[in-house]
């Protein structure tokens, strides 16, 4: 069966920490019509929060003049894809960055758990990054209601 896009959403918002909650709310509103379970919704909210916080804190070093992009696509097979990207500093060593507890910002009490949480709370995580150009995180999560 060919997979079709049921819905798609694209937005850009400034790299302000107050927009972390905004990104969670918008993503939640986008997936609500597809009846996610309470747990699926919590997983997606948390994963989005981690990715957006990374873009703001690490990608842009909290420069609120820059913009974070968020794209969400809902597919006919019940999978949701959320992409979060920045045009910030990029990650020199993605494998290192994805190690649990690795952080470049312990000073500000960053725990280095962001990527681990994104990995655990979604079905698939892809990170593409280039130093000086930016980072794109793409997460896929299958909603159980569609598989029934």
């Amino acid at each position: 069966m060919k997979r079709e896009k049921l819905n798609e959403m694209k937005m850009k918002f400034r790299a302000l920490s107050s927009n972390e909650g905004f990104a969670r709310i918008v993503t939640t509103a986008f997936i609500m019509p597809y009846s996610p379970t309470v747990e699926e919704l919590a997983d997606i909210k948390t994963a989005v929060s981690e990715a957006v916080t990374n873009a703001i804190v690490h990608g842009y070093r909290s420069n609120g003049d820059k913009y974070v992009s968020l794209t969400a696509v809902m597919y006919s097979d019940g999978s949701l894809t959320v992409s979060i990207s920045d045009k910030g500093c990029g990650i020199p060593d993605i494998h290192k960055a994805m190690e649990p507890l690795f952080t470049t910002d312990a000073e500000n009490e960053r725990t280095g758990m962001g990527f681990s949480i994104m990995e655990t709370f979604t079905d698939k995580l892809r990170v593409v990054s280039r130093v000086g150009e930016g980072t794109r995180v793409t997460m896929t999560k299958r909603l159980s209601v569609f598989s029934k």
Binding site: A42, T53, T111
Partner: peptide, 13 residues
């Protein structure tokens, strides 16, 4: 109602 890894940092700190 919600906590992400920033909350972990807050607690551990």
């Amino acid at each position: 109602s919600f906590m992400d890894s920033s909350g972990l940092g807050l607690i551990l700190g």
